[in-house]
């Protein structure tokens, strides 16, 4: 480990970007302080920056947009430009304690492969995605007959990057098929409140986003 990554020094220099989005805070709460984290699709690095400064993690990022990457690097974060569909294959097994994929799974070409890479590269993966089974989406489709536009899914169908939308029920099925065990399962409601998934029917209807802590079932 580089002396630059010393958690003690990171902690000493903490003090920026403390208030982050509630859904990102819920992700941060799933991550052990001091661990090694890869944030896939890290955007402008808000979560990564928070994790480094307030959870003392060793953080890395992968981001598709060059704008996002440049913003991250000029904030001192270790981030590279890359594509989750193509570049996760480069990372060796077990490099990280956690790999985070926040609201990005639905935009990948091959979600199953991406998921399998996440739990291969990381001991655990933290994955969140917009739940297409959320009641407002069902309602919009039922009553208006149009592709729904919500806070989590803000773009019209013809320019959305989201090409592989799924419901929470669908996601659990994929995990099962891919040999992925679920350690924690939450929904995030419209009020940004997290709720553990008890009843699947209820979660799939009332959860705007799903948030999961995953690992490989055979580990």
């Amino acid at each position: 480990m580089s002396p630059l990554d010393s958690p003690a020094l990171r902690a000493k220099n903490a003090g920026k970007r403390a208030d982050i989005r509630a859904d990102l805070l819920l992700i941060a709460d799933m991550i052990e302080p001091g661990s090694r984290v890869l944030d896939v699709g890290c955007g402008d690095g808000v979560l990564l920056d928070y994790l480094i400064h307030f959870r003392q993690v060793t953080g890395r990022g992968l981001e598709l947009s060059q704008e996002g990457v440049n913003a991250c690097v000029s904030h001192g974060l270790s981030v590279i430009q890359g594509d989750a569909d193509l570049d996760l294959a480069d990372y060796p097994d077990g490099t990280f304690d956690y790999v985070v994929l926040s609201r990005t799974l639905q935009a990948t070409q091959n979600p199953r492969e991406v998921l399998e890479h996440l739990v291969r590269i990381g001991t655990r993966a933290v994955v969140s995605f917009p739940n297409f089974g959320y009641w407002r989406i069902r309602w919009a489709l039922l009553t208006r007959g149009r592709m729904p536009v919500t806070r989590s899914l803000p773009d019209p169908w013809w320019e959305t990057p989201n090409i592989h939308l799924c419901t929470i029920r669908d996601f659990l099925e994929l995990c099962e098929a891919g040999g992925i065990a679920i350690e924690r399962a939450l929904t995030i409601g419209a009020d940004n409140r997290a709720e553990p998934i008890g009843s699947m029917r209820r979660a799939n209807l009332l959860g705007q986003d799903g948030l999961f802590l995953l690992r490989r079932a055979d580990r």
Binding site: L4, S78, I80, Q81, D87, D90, Y91, P92
Partner: peptide, 18 residues
Amino acid sequence: IVHALNSVAADVSFVECD
């Protein structure tokens, strides 16, 4: 270079400037 660094989990940033 970046791919090689990634494959050994090195600490790497990569920026392409316009």
